[in-house]
Amino acid sequence: MYQVGNLVKELSDKHGRVRESLMPILQEIVQKHNYLNDEAMVEVARELDISAAEVYGTASFYTFLDTQVKGKYVIRVCKTITCSMKGKSDIIHTIEDMLKIRVGETTTDKQFSLIETNCIGWCHKAPAILINELPYTELTPEKVSEIIKDYMQK
C-alpha cells in the first residue's frame, strides 16, 4: 500500500476536473505507483465528482490500470500467437525461476510482477516483453535473464 498524498489533487489540477481527465490521471498514478489502490481511486472519484464504482469500473476495463498490488517493475510477457510460437513459454519459465514467482504474482519484496499480455506490436521480433514501458525483443532465455539481472541490481 502506498499513501496517495497530494498526488491526485496535483494531477487533477494538471489535467482538469472533468471526466475526460480520468484516463490521464489514472495513468499517471499507475506510472508512479504501478497500480491503483482503493484510496487513490476514491480520491480520483472525489476530485472528478464521479462515483468510485465508476472509477473502478473504468480502471478495471484496462489491463494496464491494475487495481491489485503490483511491483516496481511490471514484466508483461506477450502470449499472443507469434511470441507463443517463438518461445514465450521458455521466457516465462526463465523469469519464474529467477524471481521465484508464477505468472500473475508479485515478488514479496514488491520489486517485480510477472503477467502475460496480448500482442504488444513486436511480432517480427518475437518473443517480446515489456518491463514497465520498455519493450525487449528477440528474447532468448539467456537474454532475458541478463535483462532481469540488470533490473535486480537497480
Partner: peptide
C-alpha cells in the same frame, strides 16, 4: 445519480460491481 454499481472488467470477466 449514485452509481453505487458499475460495469467492471471486460470480456468474459465483465460483471456488475460495486466499488472494488
Amino acid at each position: 445519480y449514485i452509481s453505487a454499481i458499475a460495469v467492471a472488467n471486460k470480456g468474459a470477466h465483465q460483471k456488475i460491481s460495486s466499488f472494488h
